[in-house]
Amino acid sequence: MLYRAGWHHPTEGGFASHTLSRMLGAARCRVMMLGEQAPLGAHPILVFQASDEAGQRAMNEALRLALITNQELLVLLPRGSEQEERARTAVESWSARQGRRSRCISFENEDIATLVALLRRERAGALVLPREHALLSGVAGERLLEASDTALIVVP
């Protein structure tokens, strides 16, 4: 465990953010950061849809986690893009093949407060992000960890 919700650091950009950034950058494997409580029961695995290689690795990890934990997969799609309908169709196709429940939600605003509200509303069990995702850079990543009790799985 690298970080836990509620741990405080002296200032923005202080020890915690530098340590987290260095560890995430150096890790050659998945890294999991936990919130204050471990999720119990049925909680979806969330992932952002992305067409780049890092985003695809995160999607693959989220799919794997949904399968092995028997949880719902919830894919956050960029609103109004051409890729939204293709991604929605691909997720629905995967769900049908696996006999799993999954949903897609249009998610345009990637600020921390909106994302944390979504994680709480959905009672998310985990959020899977590629290491390069903008929500993990600098102070934004630190704020995400402080504000959310959802497990964050970072994929290299």
Score class of each variant (00 low, 15 high):
Arg143Tyr: 09
Ala117Tyr: 04
Gly35Tyr: 05
Val154Pro: 06
Leu34Asp: 06
Ser106Asp: 02
Asp149Gly: 13
Ser106Pro: 07
Gly80Ala: 03
Ser102Phe: 01
Arg79Lys: 14
Gly6Pro: 11
Arg22Gln: 14
Glu12Ile: 08
Val47Thr: 08
Arg79His: 10
Ala16Asp: 09
Ala126Cys: 10
His8Ala: 12
Val155Arg: 02
Ile105Ser: 06
Asn109Ser: 14
Leu152Pro: 01
Ala50Leu: 00
Leu77Tyr: 11
Met23Pro: 00
Leu152Val: 09
Arg131Leu: 10
Asp111Asn: 14
Glu122Gln: 14
Ser106Gln: 04
Gly141His: 11
Gly138Ile: 08
Arg88Leu: 00
Leu119Trp: 01
Glu108Ser: 10
Arg143Gly: 02
Gly14Asp: 14
Ile68Met: 06
Leu118Thr: 08
Ile68Trp: 08
Glu110Phe: 03
Leu119Cys: 03
Gly141Met: 12
Gly141Asp: 08
Ala134Met: 05
Arg120His: 13
Ala117Gly: 11
Thr150Gln: 06
Val31Asp: 02
Ala38Met: 11
Ile68Lys: 05
Glu146Pro: 00
Ala113Phe: 04
Val91Gly: 00
Arg100Met: 10
Ser102Met: 02
Ser17Asp: 13
Arg22Ala: 15
Arg100Leu: 11
Ala27Leu: 05
Ala124Ser: 01
Ala58Met: 05
Gly125His: 00
Arg100Lys: 10
Val91Asp: 00
Pro44Lys: 04
Leu74Glu: 04
Val139Gly: 05
His9Asp: 15
Leu145Asn: 12
Thr11Glu: 14
Gln49His: 15
Met23His: 11
Thr150Val: 13
Ala117Trp: 06
Glu85Gly: 01
